[in-house]
Amino acid sequence: MTEATERFFESLPARGPTILRGLVEGTLQIDLEDGQQSEHWLVRMQPGAVRSARERGPADAIWYCRAALFDKLITGEAQGIAAVLRNESTFSGNVVLFLAFRRFFPNPPGTRDPREVARRAAGRLA
């Protein structure tokens, strides 16, 4: 487990109120595999709050991911849905929990909001 992954999970409770504003509620188990070892994180989400713990337990959904890929996800170098579609990670259970959790990942470096780009272009035309 990298220090960046550790810090990511520690930051979730403080970021939960801004990111989880919808009606998402449930528990997501994240299994991170690094060679012969696996680490398990249990993320409990509810509207406006999230708790995480390094443990395994009953979950509404389970997401399996390589630790190296997860490090790329938390830096914005990779995208969660793309990884699942490419079968680089797998998911089972309530897909809404995965879709909500991926909002904790940053955008790729250099990404700009298309609305802001359009506003700037409109300002140059005026």
Rank of each mutant, 00 (worst) to 15 (best):
T5M: 04
F9V: 05
P13N: 00
P13T: 02
R15Q: 13
P17W: 02
P17E: 02
T18D: 14
G22R: 07
V24R: 04
E25K: 10
Q29G: 11
I30L: 08
D31V: 14
L32T: 02
L32M: 12
D34C: 06
D34S: 11
G35A: 01
Q37E: 14
E39V: 08
E39R: 12
W41L: 08
L42T: 07
V43N: 00
R44C: 08
R44G: 08
P47V: 06
A53S: 13
A59Y: 01
A59S: 09
D60Q: 10
W63K: 06
Y64N: 15
R66M: 12
A67N: 10
L69Y: 03
L69S: 06
D71F: 01
K72R: 15
K72S: 15
L73P: 07
L73H: 08
I74E: 09
T75F: 04
G76T: 09
G76H: 04
A78Q: 10
Q79C: 13
Q79V: 13
A82W: 07
A83N: 01
R86L: 08
N87S: 12
T90V: 07
G93A: 09
N94C: 08
N94E: 13
A100W: 02
A100G: 05
F101M: 10
F101K: 04
F101Q: 07
R102K: 15
P106T: 06
G110E: 05
T111Y: 13
R115Q: 15
E116I: 10
V117F: 11
R119P: 06
A121H: 11
A122V: 03
L125Q: 14
